[in-house]
Design a protein around this nucleic acid. Sequence first.
DNA 1: CTGGATCCCTATCGATACTG
DNA 2: CAGTATCGATAGGGATCCAG
Lengths: 117, 117
Amino acid sequence: MSIETSPASTPVWHHIDDAECRRFQSSVELVGKRWSSGILLAVAQGSSRFSEIVATVTGLSDRLASQRLKELEQAGLVHREVIATTPVQIHYSLTDRGADLMKSLQPLVSWGQRWAR
Amino acid sequence: MSIETSPASTPVWHHIDDAECRRFQSSVELVGKRWSSGILLAVAQGSSRFSEIVATVTGLSDRLASQRLKELEQAGLVHREVIATTPVQIHYSLTDRGADLMKSLQPLVSWGQRWAR
DNA sequence: CTGGATCCCTATCGATACTG
DNA sequence: CAGTATCGATAGGGATCCAG
């Protein structure tokens, strides 16, 4: 699956693979869910504790933070580590997969810059 | 706003700009909405007529196609052209901005390939 | 501190029917 | 052909309270 734009021409579709298409779609839908990108950015930034993430992402509630983190963990993007202190500490971090995703999202950031109004 | 991963280390946050962050978030949320990516891919592929898009994107209904296309048009990603024939024909195409978006999404496709299970 | 459970409200969806 | 209108069902979200 790839898309190319030749100069002064229309985009061209080169190859479609259904499974790949679904993977792409589910990825972009997860990341596109409300708060997901904010949480990923916060974690990428260095926020590791639950309350830290909630504080970093403006407007994010406990409930949604919990829910999204669970989804992101299930998707293998975020790693959850329990540290047996009292009280218990939880550390969140990006998995390799998650970190690679963030790098793959960088062109999208640049796109936003290029076309800023 | 940029994210980097140094070898064998954790991702590093270099710079945050709130406006840029919101732009990024709203972009990814629009593209991440159900059917959006499918529609964009269909149009990038060459589907230009309304019914063609609906037929190309499996499971997409008239109503949602209409709604998403309106959103994508408002976001400046898709161009809608009315051709005064009888009956009237509508042609959809990617704007330059939309085509550039699709190119910026390519690393995400590659990411999906790299981490396919 | 890190969430889980509940309530309740709104947005969104799919299906169906209809129009210029 | 290219949508719009309407409706009931469902999912998502905020607020609040509670627990290990």
